[in-house]
Amino acid sequence: MALRNGPDEFGLVTRVMHWVMAILILVMLALGLRISSMEPGLSNLWLYGLHKTLGLTLLALVVLRILWHLASRPPAPIGPPGRMRLFVKTWHWTLYGLMIAVPISGWAGSSASGIDTVFAETFVVPPLVQPSERAEFVWFILHEIFAKTLLGMVIVHILAALRREMGGDGTLTRMLRGRA
């Protein structure tokens, strides 16, 4: 079981990062949908703190994952040639872009609110923008748009992986076991 990616297989590091991030993203999207419908109060303030902590954790993980892909190139994709392969590659990079944009826009929105962004109830993270009601509104609208776009893309990503696996191409198997 190799840690690094090979020409035809995903290494353990890539697979662990993929599945940990997948689970955290699904948890974050569900938590975000829940807290967006709540009125902030003392009884639920911890959920906002948890959301911020997990969001900053995901931001760090996606940066690490991109750096890892530069150090240990993923194997070539199985399946579609030509334009479809370009589409899939663009889709994946758009997912990465959203995985960066969602937490940064949330962090900026929190900064604009004038309320500290605290990581793990311990560390105050520096603000990204100056407090401003207008900036808070804009950043949180962007955060919502990015998050809902990410949710839609994640659903399509899951369905496409299942469809391809049922078609027998081995892409999902490779992300689970390393090899198709």
Rank of each mutant, 00 (worst) to 15 (best):
Leu59His: 02
Leu159Asp: 06
Trp93Ala: 04
Ala71Asn: 08
Ser43Met: 09
His51Ile: 02
Leu172Trp: 11
Thr117Cys: 03
Met38Trp: 07
Arg65Glu: 14
Gly168Glu: 12
Arg174Cys: 12
Glu39Lys: 04
Ala2Phe: 14
Val62Met: 01
Arg179Ser: 14
Val154Trp: 04
Leu86Trp: 14
His143Ala: 02
Ile158Asn: 02
Trp139Ser: 14
Asn5Glu: 07
Met21Pro: 07
Gly79Val: 06
Leu98Ile: 04
Leu159Pro: 06
Glu9His: 15
Leu3Trp: 15
His69Thr: 08
Ile78His: 04
Glu9Lys: 05
Val129Gly: 08
Pro131Ile: 14
Glu133Leu: 14
Val125Leu: 02
Met153Arg: 03
Ile155Asn: 01
Gly170Asp: 06
Arg85Ser: 04
Gly106Met: 01
Ala76Thr: 09
Ile25Phe: 13
His143Leu: 09
Val27Lys: 04
Ala160Gln: 00
Ala76Gln: 13
Leu95Phe: 03
His157Ile: 01
Met17Trp: 07
Tyr48His: 07
Ala120Pro: 02
Ile78Ala: 06
Gly79Ile: 06
Met21Ala: 12
Phe146Asp: 07
Glu133Phe: 14
Val88Asp: 11
Leu172Cys: 09
Leu31Cys: 06
Arg164Gln: 09
Thr149Pro: 04
Ser132Ala: 00
His18Phe: 03
Glu121Leu: 13
Ala2Val: 05
Ile141Tyr: 11
Trp93Leu: 15
Leu70Ser: 10
Pro126Phe: 04
Ile100Ser: 11
Ile141Trp: 13
Phe123Trp: 15
Ala30Pro: 08
Val156Lys: 03
Phe146Val: 06
Met175Gly: 01
His18Ser: 01
Met21Ser: 12
Arg34Cys: 03
Arg83Lys: 11
Pro103Trp: 00
Val102Ile: 08
Glu9Gly: 09
Arg164Met: 10
Trp46Val: 07
Leu29Trp: 14
Pro126Gln: 11
Arg15Trp: 07
Arg65Ser: 11
Glu133Arg: 13
